[in-house]
């Protein structure tokens, strides 16, 4: 049974907004593709470039970083610090030939369960179209 290419997506979600938003998608039973696996961090400000690169290195086809909307950060401005870092990392993954479309930063609040599901669905489709990053992620 070959279902075709199923991308591997690693998600980093902040505890207060996006992880809670993902939980709300669950509580509301909103469906989205199972490709994403979320790793919880307290704040997107904790996401160091090495986490992103390590994910791609280990076979992720896409990485989603999700944090609080600007102004909503539980730690005042961790999300904005993350945004600055992501700008640089995006350029870096572009240079490395990974492709910056494979890295996405999104703002999802604790109340946006539907939005979380939409973002994941849409990003999964995008990465699916981009195809596998390396041989490892096939299947």
């Amino acid at each position: 049974m070959n279902k075709g290419f199923e991308p591997n997506i690693v998600g980093f979600a902040c505890n207060w907004c996006s992880y809670a938003g993902a939980d709300l998608a669950g509580t509301s039973r909103i469906k989205y593709p199972p490709n994403i696996k979320i790793i919880r961090v307290m704040c997107t400000g904790r996401v160091t470039p090495a986490f992103i690169l390590k994910s791609f290195q280990n076979g992720a086809d896409g990485v989603l970083v999700a944090g609080c909307h600007p102004g909503d950060c539980h730690y005042i401005a961790g999300n904005l610090k993350c945004e600055k870092i992501m700008d640089v990392v995006k350029r870096l993954v572009g240079i490395l030939g990974i492709g910056k479309e494979r890295l996405r930063l999104e703002w999802v609040s604790a109340s946006e369960g539907g939005r979380f599901a939409d973002v994941v669905t849409e990003f999964t489709e995008q990465v699916r179209e981009l195809g596998p990053l390396s041989g490892k992620s096939q299947g």
Binding site: G45, T48, A60
Partner: peptide, 30 residues
């Protein structure tokens, strides 16, 4: 929050319970 651990250029700061090694191991396993 861990912002200092990201800012530290020589990895002298570790964020307890969300250490680099801990998250790397999660990435590998997931």
């Amino acid at each position: 929050c861990g912002a200092c651990a990201v800012a530290c250029p020589c990895r002298a700061i570790s964020m307890k319970h969300f250490k680099n090694e801990q998250i790397f191991s999660q990435i590998e396993a997931v």
